[in-house]
Nucleic acid binder design. Sequence first.
DNA 1: TGTTAAAAAGTTAACGATAACACATCCGCA
DNA 2: TGCGGATGTGTTATCGTTAACTTTTTAACA
Lengths: 355, 355
Amino acid sequence: MKKKIGKKRQITLSDIAATVGVAPMTVSRVLNQNGYVSDETRDKVLSVAKEMNYRRNGLARNLKRQRTETIGLVLGDISNPYSTELARAVRQAATANDYNLFICISEHSAEEDIAAFESLTSHSVDGLIVATRANDAGDEYLKSIVENNVPVVVIGRDFYHENIDYISADNLAGGFEATQHLVDLGHRRIGFIGAAFDQETKLKRLQGYFNALEKHGIEIDERLVTGRREVRSGVPGYSTEEIGYEGMKRLLSLPKRPTAVFARNDFTAIGAMTAIKEASLRIPQDVAIIGFDDIPLASHMSPSLSTVRQPMRLQGQIAAELLLKRIESESFPEREERILNCELIIRESTVSRKS
Amino acid sequence: MKKKIGKKRQITLSDIAATVGVAPMTVSRVLNQNGYVSDETRDKVLSVAKEMNYRRNGLARNLKRQRTETIGLVLGDISNPYSTELARAVRQAATANDYNLFICISEHSAEEDIAAFESLTSHSVDGLIVATRANDAGDEYLKSIVENNVPVVVIGRDFYHENIDYISADNLAGGFEATQHLVDLGHRRIGFIGAAFDQETKLKRLQGYFNALEKHGIEIDERLVTGRREVRSGVPGYSTEEIGYEGMKRLLSLPKRPTAVFARNDFTAIGAMTAIKEASLRIPQDVAIIGFDDIPLASHMSPSLSTVRQPMRLQGQIAAELLLKRIESESFPEREERILNCELIIRESTVSRKS
DNA sequence: TGTTAAAAAGTTAACGATAACACATCCGCA
DNA sequence: TGCGGATGTGTTATCGTTAACTTTTTAACA
């Protein structure tokens, strides 16, 4: 059974104006609190507006004003605390500067990446923060957006453009430190979980791992690097518990298994830990493991997870600041690039507790 | 140093029209692929559009068309896998039906709740899915939105309105089952972590706990119910690892500590587990613990965490479906209410492994 | 060859809001 | 008395697009 038929027309400024007996412009002035309006008129307008349940039409308003006071954030894997912390920080900065934040998710492919850019820019967001992984089609599209003078800032996305600011954690140094830490503990056979050996050549964390091994004269063993092969071309996925679990199983079944493992991120590490425990091996005595990100749960694992902390909030905050600067600047600011330091967090999964 | 001064005007349909030598309407027809256009004109328009890097102005378009093909989703705690799974499901359904999805976060307060509603509705989203916790001011505002004929669906938000569909997991039954499970294992002193005793009286999971105790003639002990008191009025926060950790410490320090604990959600449970381990007590022999949600990590904890699984994706999917139905209906569909079953997942944190 | 319909455009008028300007009053002070 | 500024309000045009209508051209067939 249906209730009423037909949806009513939305209430406009003119409706209020007609009811009160003034010009629409006067109503606009009242509602935007600018220009001169007598107290009497103001009160009347406000009460009528409330009575008619008026809600301003942002489309019309923004069209006329040529700005939306809204910024867009494109996230890849939204399940990742990295993304969510980023989002929170961006939101906070946006709110503090009276900007709204719209978030779009682009999960798997370049098409989704582009769809997200498209839907945000076509809604005329004042600026865009992009935190998805690089892919050719998306990069191409981003470029065309920027060349349409939409301010853009990228976070952790490997993409250079003269008018795009770049922010990232220092994944290269982080990957290096994590591996170095394992080497310092005496490990020589060190695995990497989270990326296929011959793919993701741009993955900085993996490069850091290679660099550290090289520095210490440890030969790189292809079999020790494992991860699910990306099925789709386009945007690479993110590594999960499941991938960590599977990857660890593979590593453990090697003739000469690694004595330590560096996982691409904490989720991957947690999955790997499960596999190690299932094999009745001890962490860290039999296999040491270190993750990346320092998600809140890392310290609650048992054993607690060593990891590399990256400044998640800070990245979001800086991104928002740079974006707002771009938005509010009349001209084109010089490109800024910020690579933020990571911090090695040593816990029980690499060094057994002494007490 | 600045690069160029002044931002160029955006390219419009008329610009293309002028260049090609046709009317703007013809260009519009080409770009929207409707109406008759000769192949020759089409090609010319498309090539000029591409050359000029034309990007349509969605504000103007949507204003004229009176719809945006966009839906809004308001989330509370974005860090929670519950929220993120919801978002993914909603996005999937939206995309499949050619709708965009904008997500807004409302973290702490009624004001933020309202700001999110405001920014989405003022952008004229075609409909709104709300998954934040109920609060008076927000409810009031929601009501006014609905009465402006914006389709709304709420998920897990305790709020009744004739024209708003309601979706939720059966938290009451879930809380009951979790507690019942502990009782079945022989526990009589069962704690609850995640809500203050005298607050959150509407919290269904807590009510389920009370109901189960009552059913088995176990007296409710106020001291066994613990959680951080909400500082702000307005939107209640969510329970976290930290709260679980603190809460468990309090429970363990009681003269007669509980032998089992039901945590409001898995994060809280995980925090509680850390506190239990720190006290050198065994799980589940000394203290059994069960959570709620079944986040992916629950099975990776050690011991693995018993919990109540709620259908996260399904809630999002149904919400999207109901919303799209409302959007596409000319009239007002009858209100729908869907309470989805939860599932008890028994793991090692309540029943020790036999093998 | 004329009639009619389909195809390919163009014209007009909004969508709802506001910037920019114009026009009244009113007040104070030289 | 008059002049300038503050105050209050109205008018006009426009943001960029498209729905609805009109006009012109082409094709099709009796």
